[in-house]
Design a protein around this nucleic acid. Structure first.
Lengths: 120, 120
DNA sequence: CTAAATGCAAACTATTTGCAACGAT
DNA sequence: ATCGTTGCAAATAGTTTGCATTTAG
């Protein structure tokens, strides 16, 4: 585990904002100004592969990164793009039953309007 | 409705392969060699907005396009990437209930291994 | 006639990669 | 000394856009 890998992991674990690679890069530069974007992406890939970090695929927007807590889904505000965690368990059996197929994985993006945007 | 828009729409409606923009472009060139990629993308956006075509977001892969039949989900083969339609209804109320939020839209990508790939 | 749409090419965004130099074991 | 990792810059994939020209209504 290199210094840059640790910085990247720490940023993700310390953040509740589901940062994008770009945001992680900006935060990492504050700790280590010489760090390169390529390094951030390479380490994100490695951390995701090792299971230390979870990748959130956001359709038509940069991916976000999260710590791998208890499995949960992501609510994305249609208006401002903010991501909120939400627990949904027992979805896999429902999907398998409804499709009749042996689903090995699913990616779910839920869209809503967050409270802040609702009150605008 | 321009000639190129009609060609693009017809390709999608005639295909059972959920083509990507690139594939649509290649097929369209056979009907009209002068057509430009930009035109394909612009028309796809328009057709999706008008509801005549449905866009399938595929994480880490080009988007695919589909005719807007009865709402259905998409099974993506983890191995070869082929997309198969599958009916799942009554999912929205389950998601609303499980999250306790007013979900306005969801995008679900289901991964499996298709029969062809299973037999390799 | 004129607003909308086109072809072309350049631009853009998110991400990946080749390579020489670096660093930890 | 070695092998993984870095910084840098260039490359890539998918898509979007500016602009002068063409076309549909």
């Amino acid at each position: 585990m290199t210094k840059q890998r640790k910085i990247i992991k720490d940023i993700i674990y310390a953040s509740y904002k589901h940062p994008t690679a770009e945001e992680i890069f900006e935060l990492a530069k504050k700790k280590m100004p010489s760090i390169a974007v390529g390094t951030v992406y390479r380490n994100l890939t490695l951390l995701v592969e090792s299971g230390e970090v979870r990748k959130i695929d956001v359709p038509n927007a940069p991916s976000r990164y999260d710590r791998p807590q208890i499995p949960h889904e992501h609510l994305i505000c249609k208006n401002c793009g903010v991501v909120k965690d939400v627990m949904i368990d027992g979805l896999m059996p429902i999907l398998k039953e409804k499709t009749g197929e042996d689903i090995v994985e699913y990616k779910l993006a839920l869209y809503y309007v967050c409270d802040k945007c609702k009150n605008l």
